[in-house]
Amino acid sequence: MSKITDKLREYRVDGYYTEFDYHWTMTVDLDRCTGCEACVVACQAENNLPIVGEKRMRQGREMKWIRVERYWDGDYPNARLNFIPMLCQQCDQAPCEIACPVFATYHNQDGLNAQVYNRCIGTRTCAVYCPYEVRFFNWFTYTWDEPLEQQLNPDVTVREKGVMEKCTFCIQRINRAKDAARDEDRRVGDGEAQPACAQACPTDAIVFGDRNDPDSAVSQKMQDPRAYEVLKELNTAPSVIYLKNARAPLHAEKDEGHHREEAAEAHAAAGEPRWADSGKAAS
């Protein structure tokens, strides 16, 4: 009996791992980030993201494992635009992981939120449960116009219709670094594994590394007083830590009704499909 209860207790540990071998973590310094979107294309190139085409874009079916979100502050002439790159947060208490009926998504020994394409049956529950909306569904089997497919990264699979996909922290690169380290009987050093977005970032806003190593660059960055988690109130324990933009606030005096106005403005466009296109649109 006690064996069973022990087993149950083990089962109840969040994500099943009490400790991770590596705890891959990313910090995104919003003060450095310029919103240039080099990371977005780097990710597309590395991870064989499909070119969905204009029609699918209009239908709101873009595939960008990392995207740059934009938020305006204030109005002309005191307007300001803020950027925040959004990618899978690799939550340690991931809402998506409880959702999948077939365990296509699970937490791995490195603290990563892994997605098993082969196992996915496409209920899309994980994407609905994900508060960051960083899961992407293959609505179709996408193809590449020949010979664009010759660019595809052989280290990453190409997904078929009906499968959910998302940022993996470039697990193929992590595994390569781990293999190399294992051959030399050592741990992966700081900076040896870099996801494509971090490597491309021209301002070094994205830093990636192992949180378990207190000396790693990412551990250092996490100590920054500007560090915060997006949607912390949901208690998802994300592995992507943002460093707040240090720009002085735009409005010293922010009036009470401000948010409501913003919301009203936001809703004004609500009835409209976001792809502002009607069937009779002129080309």
Partner: peptide, 12 residues
């Protein structure tokens, strides 16, 4: 593929 339906990135 399920793309025949109207669901999209937001409304899965």
């Amino acid at each position: 593929g399920v793309g025949a339906a109207g669901m999209n990135r937001n409304a899965m």
